[in-house]
Amino acid sequence: MLAEVSMAEVSRLRRWTQGLTLVEVMIGVGVLAILIAVAVPSMMDLLERRRVIATANEVIGVLNYARAETNATNTALVVRFDPDPETDPSKALSCVAVTTKETASNSCKCYLPEATLCQGAFAPRLLRLYKLPKTNVKFAASAAHWNATAENQIKFTRDQGGIVAQGFQVDVVGTKRGHALRVEVNPAGRVIVCAPNGDFSGYAKCS
């Protein structure tokens, strides 16, 4: 009896030390591939949503900064969203800058190198700048009516308590899956965030 038990144990030990069979390995690889195929899109989806939220928060921070500084200093400030003319997607930028006055001057385009921005004796002063490569997330501003002086610029004024532009909004969009948030500024200068497609958890659908 003891011999039979010992032989059975030896047989099981021998099978274990021999490792997995090719069929077992192939089954394991197939199961792993299925798990990866299910998990990767979900992870990519989550990652893009987080990037869109982070970018929207940066834009909100710039707008709130301009509004707060305008109220604190009683000086009108300009927030400009100059479209980058770069056609190469790997080099193109989304950008926003806060300056001390409106200008159509090319020297203050926010996509230019920071060292060359707003240079010159009569150029506005650069107060804040945010640039983002368009590889994963991009943002762009639009308005129903821009200020007459220059497009792609809004001006915060203390007397008006808001901005000089109508229907202003900034769309922040993921470049891979298209997840999007919209940053709006109402005439009173209040910043509102919503989801244009209504599919962004935690954010109301834009009206």
Rank of each mutant, 00 (worst) to 15 (best):
L2H: 05
L2Y: 03
L2T: 13
L2F: 08
E4G: 09
E4P: 00
V5N: 12
V5C: 10
S6M: 14
M7E: 12
A8W: 00
V10R: 12
V10M: 14
S11P: 00
S11H: 08
S11T: 11
R12W: 12
R14L: 15
W16C: 08
W16I: 08
T17N: 05
Q18Y: 02
Q18S: 14
Q18E: 14
Q18D: 10
T21R: 07
V29S: 06
G30V: 05
V31I: 15
V31A: 11
L32G: 08
A33S: 14
A37M: 12
A39K: 04
A39S: 11
A39D: 03
A39Q: 02
V40D: 03
V40G: 07
L46F: 12
L46E: 04
L47T: 11
E48C: 06
R50K: 08
R50L: 09
R51W: 08
V52F: 01
I53K: 01
A54S: 14
V59A: 11
I60Y: 03
G61S: 11
V62R: 06
V62S: 08
L63N: 06
Y65M: 10
Y65V: 06
A66C: 05
R67H: 08
A68N: 14
T70G: 06
R80G: 13
P85T: 03
E86K: 10
T87F: 00
D88P: 11
P89N: 02
S90D: 14
K91T: 12
L93S: 05
S94M: 06
V96L: 14
V96C: 13
K101A: 09
K101H: 11
K101S: 11
K101Y: 01
E102S: 14
T103D: 07
A104K: 09
S105G: 09
S107Q: 09
C108G: 10
Y111S: 05
E114T: 14
Q119L: 10
Q119N: 07
Q119A: 08
F122A: 07
F122Q: 06
A123G: 02
P124D: 03
R128Q: 15
Y130T: 09
K131C: 13
L132P: 04
K134S: 04
V137H: 02
A140E: 11
A143W: 01
A143T: 01
A143G: 07
H145D: 10
A148S: 15
A150N: 14
I154A: 03
K155V: 07
T157M: 03
D159N: 08
D159F: 06
Q160T: 08
Q160D: 08
G162A: 05
G162L: 05
I163N: 00
I163F: 01
A165F: 01
Q166P: 01
G167Y: 04
G167W: 05
V170F: 07
D171G: 04
V173Q: 10
V173L: 14
K176L: 15
H179V: 00
A180K: 11
A180R: 10
L181K: 02
R182M: 15
E184Y: 00
N186K: 06
P187F: 00
P187C: 01
G189N: 02
V191E: 07
V193N: 03
V193D: 01
C194Q: 09
A195S: 15
P196R: 08
N197I: 00
G198A: 12
D199C: 11
F200A: 04
S201D: 15
G202V: 02
